[in-house]
């Protein structure tokens, strides 16, 4: 019963977190949310009888990918001389080539 409740929470939270990742104003927060999304995802893998995938997701999907994003964010910030504005979507003049 508890497990089913747990599944239920996961099912609801995963898309919500995914939505939050894309909707948060601050990109730094978005990356942090993405890492927690990865960790929740690995819980879902455990629930779906895929321990191998869970380990890989926690280590690669959440850990390394999160680190990659943070490192990129660090470089982006640095390249605008320690201004944090770049993190927000509003100041998008900074990244002007933005067609897909």
């Amino acid at each position: 019963m508890i497990l089913i409740l747990f599944d239920f929470v996961l099912i609801i939270t995963l898309p919500l977190l995914g939505w939050a990742v894309l909707a948060t104003e601050d990109i730094f927060k978005a990356v942090v949310l993405f890492v927690s999304f990865g960790l929740l995802m690995s819980l879902a893998w455990v629930r779906l009888n895929a321990p191998d995938v869970a380990l890989a997701e926690a280590a690669i999907g959440a850990g390394v990918t999160g680190a990659l994003f943070l490192s990129a964010l660090n470089k982006l910030e640095r390249s605008v001389k320690h201004e944090r504005r770049i993190n927000r979507d509003e100041e998008k003049e900074a990244i002007n080539e933005r067609e897909i």
């Binding site: 894309l22 990109i27 990356v31 993405f34 999907g61 994003f69 990129a72 979507d89 990244i95 897909i100």
Partner: peptide, 11 residues
């Protein structure tokens, strides 16, 4: 619009 967010979206 932000490239980083696009990459997050792909993930």
């Amino acid at each position: 619009s932000h490239q980083l967010r696009k990459i997050l979206a792909v993930n």
